[in-house]
Design a protein around this nucleic acid. Structure first.
Lengths: 370, 370
DNA sequence: GCTTGTACTTGAAACGCATCAAAGGGGCCG
DNA sequence: CGGCCCCTTTGATGCGTTTCAAGTACAAGC
């Protein structure tokens, strides 16, 4: 239980302290026998390098920090997944912190990571990133994810507006007259989706649009109660197209509508955003617009690497991802993965996730409710 | 960009180094004016304490590490969520690492956390935890989650066998004659579920049972292809009850069956495990057995706290969670949250998650496919 | 046998901070 | 005015590493 330190290993192995350090960091400098001896001693003693001391002495570690607003949001996980894979590819570790929808906590973890001599830090901010301009003059490379910053700095943003636009176009194509958007628009990203919808509808003044706040958590239950409220309206005040700013919300809305005897999509069409696999892998797939989360995470790490390698004091660079739309239908999915039979969209997901052929396009998964 | 250190702050504020340190760690020891002066200086200079140095000088930090096998698995996220909340309650930070289904990586992050002077570390191991007995004699409190250890040490386990038993009993009650279990049984937890099923069926030798491996990733696509294979069998070799060891798998199986013209649940019943919200909040909820992930995370942190506070060199302690089953139906859900109207199961989820009234019971969410 | 070079190894210095014994300053009492 | 005590501030010390200039040993070349 007593902690074994490098000097213990050195004494026990009969070499000097610096040699053990070299065994750990520059093994090629040692004679094979020495290296072997030291490694055996390390294992025998159960020595674990003290990361704090390493970092203090040696500067930054090869690890990145990622602060996410929530963990139960599929999109954030895609980001984490993309960031993780890209980081590992460069030999970096990725540590994730959950800000739990709390500004203070987000700030806390951000500072924590900065102070831990991380090589770089990424945030998917819940508010506007201008919340703390100080962040951009931090001594560590930082990249904002899934958001547009007006401050100078680095960010990777999904084209949330494009997502809104795509949905709106879908609605127009389906002949919608009254669109109801469900979700908390206070989240920056969702606001942009709404903006995209509005823009796309600018040329269609005849289409009525309303936004209903779904409460802080955007849960299925929130969707359900809003759906119930919609179902309760007289038919002429009822929307014919509902957009859930989240898949879970959309799912809840649909449940409520069906429960209340409103048929979907005959009377009301419903679509979601996020591309949650379960939402569209079920027997009754939900139409969903999926921002390229995986790609955002990946690009985020690339931006970090760029800053690290160039040693250039923070310049500004922005990457926008997902402006192009890719429509996933049974047919295109089948094409993509080169199968003859009719396959479901999620098979594409498999093909792309596993084979790592993710593109940076925004995916539309056409489901049954639309 | 140049890093500001504590001595810079001290010089700038005209106080000594130790005083600044006190301002950070023992503010009550300072005169209010001094404290204020120092804090202003800190903000003005943008000083960030170097965590490595703090840890090196001061011993362990108030933070825990959590190593998860995957991030895209709802159950792991529930663990993370429970652990996070409990950790924050005690004033600890929680850092999460994604082992990405890789033994080596899991080991790597574990060692990393140990070496970072974390106050404690938790793992949800993917293999048997006996994989590395050395772990139990580490210099840091460690707790294994969702698994039974034969080695001495601490762990919190969901009663996976109980989950299997519950499902089997459900199958028996529905008059099943041929049960097919879909999933990679190589995962310890899944093995136990299968074991539970076998045990429950011991008294029913007439019920045939088979297990089909779903490949390494347990994706919806895997479920789909297995479902298609099942659908392709002659009717008398086809199971009348399919258990997906994962909700996503179950979802995929259902899709395939429906696509191939087999009606669910009339011809084949399907149930899943995990309690993924999206699986049962949809318009056609999936029956699911939900292990109490949130609770496991919570208890894990509690076990960590216990070890820390008692300063007792690692003793052995095990907590089993979720042996009792709680059946969630529309009716009980309504009861639980005290509503008159018929509500859907996920409303219970909301009630419990938000109000933090999670119990440690295994939940069964009765859906439409059973 | 001496020099030069090569291949390792050594150990002291520094990393930024928390700690704590000791010093400083002020008020109170005798 | 001296002595005492309490409140606040000081700064040297050490935490476990990495780094790097200096050292050692040995081989090759002359």
């Amino acid at each position: 239980m007593a902690k074994v330190k490098i000097s213990d290993v050195a004494r026990e192995a009969g070499v000097s302290l610096g040699t053990v350090s070299n065994a750990l960091n520059h093994p090629e400098k040692l004679r094979p026998e020495t290296l072997k001896l030291i490694n055996e001693t390390i294992n025998r003693l159960g020595y674990l390098p003290n990361q704090s001391a390493r970092q203090l002495a040696g500067g930054a570690t090869k690890s990145f920090g990622l602060v996410l607003p929530r963990l139960d949001h599929g999109f954030s996980l895609q980001i984490a997944s993309g960031a993780h894979n890209e980081a590992r590819k460069h030999g970096y570790d990725l540590l994730i912190a959950n800000a739990d929808n709390d500004d203070i906590l987000q700030d806390h973890y951000l500072r924590y990571f900065m102070g831990t001599q991380m090589s770089g830090v990424m945030v998917q901010p819940m508010a506007s990133p201008d919340w703390h301009p100080a962040m951009t003059k931090m001594p560590v490379p930082i990249v904002h994810l899934d958001i547009h910053c007006s401050e100078p700095g680095y960010y990777v943003a999904a084209d949330n507006e494009a997502q809104g636009r795509i949905i709106a176009e879908l609605a127009i194509a389906r002949g919608a007259h009254h669109i109801t958007v469900v979700g908390r628009a206070a989240f920056m990203q969702l606001t942009l989706r709404v903006l995209g919808i509005h823009k796309a509808l600018a040329l269609h003044p005849d289409i009525k649009i309303e936004v209903i706040d779904a409460g802080e958590w955007n849960t299925a239950a929130d969707g359900y109660s809003i759906g119930a409220q919609i179902a309760g309206r007289p038919a002429n005040e009822r929307p014919d197209f509902v957009v859930g700013l989240t898949d879970v919300l959309a799912s809840g809305v649909i449940s409520a509508l069906v429960d209340k005897g409103i048929s979907v999509p005959e009377q009301v069409r419903v679509a979601g955003c996020d591309g949650n696999p379960l939402a569209w892998s079920g027997s009754v797939p939900l139409t969903t617009v999926a921002p390229p989360g995986y790609e955002i995470g990946r690009k985020g790490v690339q931006l970090l690497m760029e800053q690290i390698e160039n040693k250039v004091p923070t310049k500004t660079k922005h990457i926008h991802v997902g402006s192009a739309a890719r429509t996933v239908t049974a047919a295109t999915a089948a094409e993509d993965i080169n199968r003859q039979e009719l396959v479901r969209p999620f098979l594409l997901e498999r093909a792309s996730t596993q084979a790592n052929t993710q593109t940076d396009a925004t995916a539309i998964n056409l489901g049954a409710y639309l």
